[in-house]
Write a protein that binds this DNA or RNA. Structure first.
Length: 926
RNA sequence: GCUGAAGUGGUGGAACUGGUAGACACGCAGGACUUAAAAUCCUGUGCCCUCAACAGGCGUGCGGGUUCGAUUCCCGCCUUCAGUACCA
């Protein structure tokens, strides 16, 4: 029979499902290997051709590892809480659970027909109560923990209480809020229960705090910083404003240093690590307090160059700094207010574009440099950000270019502080070289000494200390929306208390409408009679999107467990994810939060590994490739009924229209389908080039409105899943972003057919011979065995597809239909094109390809006696010459020079030198 | 600006450790089969000079360098993409 991909693929997909062929063993003597994909949010649009790219790669890797004798865990699930289903619910009244279920079914159908080897018995859905029970449970562990800076790990809150009982708060070194109280053990004992709870909340790893949040009135919800772009919501593009509210936060900053250090231990793409480093934004420096003249106030600044403190010639506050009004003198009041008004008007974008312009205003107030005793002016300027550090900086014009510009613009002094500083009247010189001058008691010191000395001095005097500052803030954990995990907390006397563990899961209540209440409370406020013990108000926020995805890889290890998030045995066996494949858009979201929760769970002894994802690969984005037709317009600019082919468009006045890429092949329009596509084009006329209508092309985001979405279903119907899988890999390196095009898919399909034909005679009857393979056949086989092995291990899937083509071309030329060769070839190709291979495997009389062994590479088959040496003269390749590979330099040189053709090229010139690299090249230098 | 990645035929891309640049595929051109088309098969296909062949020259973003030999290493620049942005 000819290659009937549809029947073959259905048959084996059914077989795999019925036999649970890819179920990971809970216990095994085989080494474990955990291959994870970033699980999808099941959106209503279903999968497009870009989604499966990473899944195909991970599937090939998983199947390969199984053939190599590993016990592979390769699961899939759904990140099924999220905003789109809720938005849809608001519009239609349909419960998000229903929408989600429908979408999941579509996803599952689409995934199944690509033939993935997922272990579906371990499927998870973050919106399933059996799953979010454990998300809530982790929240409770966080609530019940604090971060001990002495042991550098999280500990149960009970150890903190013990410390308070014993020694009060003095010796406690903890990651905590800034407004903690100092108390003695006796004070602690005297605190009321409420006072104790208030104090403990300042130490818990998840805590309530009044914070400024990004409030989006249109969406009725709070957004994370990464969900806001330039003052508008990333989703929907609605305006976002700042609003103060009590919010649950996660004390991720406690882990900032470990999150940073851990990056050095994991095999991730460098750009990803770099993004996380920048996001965490560690800077080492000092905080210094400047006393305000004629006031009790002290302004704290953060600096990374405490050594330059004698060069301070002014201080700047952010315009939003809360003390600005208070510290402005009456004479300067108008100036300052005017400046603040101006800053407010500037949007974030303007402020960015304006980065070069110097602006600011003098408050009229002076502050005192605690080190030198000098009085300097206090200014405000919008180059200082309220949200970073303390919202105040010291200006050192000789050492910082921005400060230099500011000082020059406003005529403030520029003080040289190092003898090595050059040209400071032209620009700042941030050098750390040389010895300090004009710097009081650090004069004559060098950088390192000065920093250490100053830090100690500041601390001794109580006016500052060495400090590490992070850009990263604690993560806000509450969302004012419905479709998320309820937070397992109720309020008594205004204080939060946890539910009991056995009361989990706290189920999402039913509500009438998925909108905030009339009083502005979150949607959960609509749930009637939803009270803890019928009296206490539950927390009405739900968890953010990243909650459920911050630990899901552990649930796959033991997905059905009802008494633990995953059993100790399962966690001890699977440990961590060996290979994680997903997009780089999660660099500072999911991947950071997951590492945070993982470290926390490790601290409490629930998991084994400090880092959850050993190796990470980012698959590139598949962009859309839009096609255009060009409608000729008349004098008045009205569209006519005529369309002109792209190559001739310069001769006409025309407008470009998106055309559905599914009726275009190799950029040539299928005119009949086009006429049927839209009524308005039913009678269109075409100006053709070379008898064809050629469409224009542009690379854009894949989107419905651009008619450039390619649905895998269509391609599978036309070519089959095996072709789709191989074609997606053939497109280019996995990590590279590329526009989708179907131009080469025929070639891959032809390859599979050619492969199929190796096993069949002219009449398409299955025929293999049991004859001994020839040397050439074995060579072709072992070349591909080695190639695939090497390629898969370095995730170079595109090159192995090419090599498969070469192998099949070679074997076709050799007319090889020998079982001894083809049977191994089937196994080698199985990870890429599993359906056709499984069929051929069974036609060869075997059972269950998933239990086969990857063929062992034998280098002896590749050994050559001869090599066609490229002979180059002065590095230019001239000809090839067959020489025995046993020849060493001397004999080879003789043989080369004896050759007539070589002599012809030399044309009488005497070789100065002959380079001979065995098995590689001969280069004659003349 | 900073950080990171990348720049190779008409196109996607290959060349893994400095050793034959353009594998494999698409497209295109020509041919076979066919009444014809599709499918299939065969041949050719980096550019320039040449009717063509032979031979030659050029060629991996640009300019230099190291080397017998550079897509690969070094220096300087340009462009594109991604992230980030007055971070004190």
């Amino acid at each position: 029979m000819d290659y009937q991909f549809a029947a073959i693929e259905q048959k084996w997909q059914k077989y795999w499902a019925e036999n649970q062929s890819f179920k990971a063993e809970a216990n095994s003597d085989k080494p474990k290997y955990y291959v994870l994909d970033m699980f999808p949010y099941p959106s209503g649009a279903g999968l497009h051709v870009g989604h499966p790219l990473g899944y195909i790669a991970s599937d090939i890797f998983s199947r390969y590892k199984r053939l190599k004798g590993y016990n592979v865990l390769h699961p899939m699930g759904y990140d099924s809480f999220g905003l789109p289903a809720e938005q849809y619910a608001i519009q239609t009244g349909q419960h998000p659970a229903v929408t989600t279920e429908t979408n999941i079914n579509t996803y599952r159908r689409q995934l199944d027909q690509i033939g993935f080897s997922f272990d579906w018995s371990r499927e998870v859905r973050t919106s399933d109560p059996a799953y979010y029970k454990w998300t809530q449970w982790i929240f409770m562990q966080l609530f019940n923990s604090w971060y001990n800076l002495e042991t550098d790990k999280a500990e149960p809150i009970s150890t903190l209480i013990a410390k308070f009982n014993e020694a009060g708060s003095a010796d406690v070194k903890a990651a905590k809020d800034e407004d903690t109280r100092n108390f003695l053990p006796t004070d602690w004992a005297a605190f009321s229960e409420e006072e104790k709870q208030v104090e403990l909340l300042k130490y818990r790893l998840t805590y309530l705090k009044e914070s400024t949040v990004n409030w989006c009135p249109a969406l009725g919800t709070v957004l994370a910083n990464d969900e806001v772009k330039d003052g508008f919501s990333e989703r929907g593009g609605f305006p976002v404003e700042q609003k103060k509210m009590m919010q649950w936060s996660m004390r991720i900053t406690a882990y900032a240093d470990r999150l940073l250090q851990g990056l050095d231990t994991i095999d991730w793409p460098e750009p990803m690590k770099e993004m996380q480093r920048n996001w965490i934004g560690k800077s080492v420096g000092a905080s210094v307090k400047f006393k305000v003249e004629n006031s009790e106030k002290q302004i704290e600044v953060f600096t990374t160059r405490v050594d330059t403190i004698f060069g301070v010639s002014y201080l700047v506050l952010a315009p939003e700094h809360e003390w600005v009004a208070e510290l402005t003198t009456p004479e300067q009041k108008a100036d300052i207010e005017n400046y603040i008004a101006q800053t407010k008007k500037k949007s974030e974008l303007d402020r960015m574009a304006d980065a070069k312009t110097v602006s600011g205003a003098f408050t009229g107030t002076y502050v005192v440099n605690p080190v030198s005793g000098e009085r300097v002016q206090l200014w405000i300027a919008d180059y200082v950000l309220a949200g970073y550090g303390t919202g105040a900086v010291m200006g050192v014009p000789s050492g910082d270019q921005r400060d230099w510009l500011f000082a020059t613009h406003f005529n403030l002094p520029i003080i040289q502080i190092l003898d090595a500083q050059k040209d400071i009247n032209v620009q700042a010189d941030p050098t750390k070289e040389g010895k300090y001058i004009n710097s009081g008691f650090i004069n004559g010191m060098e950088y390192k000494e000065a920093v250490a000395f100053l830090n100690q001095w500041l601390e001794d005097q109580g006016v500052g200390k060495a400090k590490v500052n992070f850009r990263q803030r604690d993560a806000i954990f509450g969302r004012q929306r419905y479709w998320g995990e309820p937070i397992p907390v109720y309020f008594k006397d205004g204080l939060p208390y946890l539910l009991k563990e056995e009361e989990l899961p706290l189920l999402l209540p039913e509500i009438d409408k998925y909108l905030p209440t009339e009083t502005g409370e979150p949607p959960l406020g609509r749930a009637e009679g939803w009270k803890y013990e019928d009296r206490y108000e539950y927390e009405l926020s739900t968890m953010p999107g990243w909650a459920g995805s911050s630990w899901y890889w552990y649930r796959y290890m033991d997905a059905q467990n009802d008494s633990e998030f995953a059993s100790k045995e399962a966690v001890n066996y699977w440990k961590d994810v060996d290979l994680y494949i997903g997009g780089n858009e999660h660099a500072t979201g999911h991947l950071l939060y997951s590492r945070f929760w993982n470290k926390f769970l490790k601290d409490l002894g629930f998991v084994q590994e400090e880092e959850p994802f050993k190796k990470l690969i980012n698959q590139g984005m598949i962009q859309g490739r839009s096609n255009f037709v060009y409608r000729v317009v008349d004098e008045e600019g009205r569209g006519t009924n005529t369309l002109v082919s792209a190559g001739l468009r310069k001769d006409y006045k025309s407008i470009a229209l998106h055309v559905d890429v599914n009726i275009v092949e190799n950029d040539v329009l299928d005119i009949e389908k086009f006429k049927a596509w839209r009524d308005e084009f039913a009678n269109a006329e075409f100006i053709l080039e070379n008898g064809k209508y050629v469409c224009g092309v542009e690379v854009e985001k894949m989107s419905k409105s651009k008619f450039n979405v390619v649905n895998p279903d269509v391609l599978i119907a036309q070519y089959g899943a095996d072709t789709l899988r191989m074609y997606e890999m053939f497109l280019g390196p996995l990590e590279q972003s590329k526009p989708w095009n179907t131009n080469g898919i025929e070639g891959v399909f032809k390859f599979l057919r050619k492969f199929w034909r190796l096993f069949h005679n002219e009449a398409w009857e299955f025929t293999v011979s049991d004859a001994e393979p020839t040397k050439a056949e074995l060579k072709a086989l072992h070349k591909i065995i080695k190639k695939v092995q090497d390629d898969v291990e370095r995730f170079s899937f595109n090159t192995s597809v090419s090599s498969f083509m070469i192998a099949v071309n070679d074997l076709t030329d050799l007319k090889c239909n020998k079982r001894a060769v083809l049977q191994d070839l089937v196994v080698v190709l199985a990870a890429y094109a599993p359906h056709i291979c499984e069929e051929l495997w069974s036609l060869l009389g075997n059972k269950d390809l998933s239990t086969a062994q990857f063929p062992i590479f034998n280098p002896n088959y590749l050994v050559e006696d001869e090599f066609a040496y490229p002979i180059s003269i002065n590095g230019k390749m001239k000809m090839n010459l067959n020489l025995s590979l046993t020849l060493e330099q001397d004999e080879a040189t003789v043989a080369v020079l004896a050759n007539e053709q070589v002599q012809g090229f030399l044309n009488g010139a005497a070789p100065k030198k002959i380079i001979f690299v065995k098995g590689k090249i001969v280069n004659i230098v003349v």
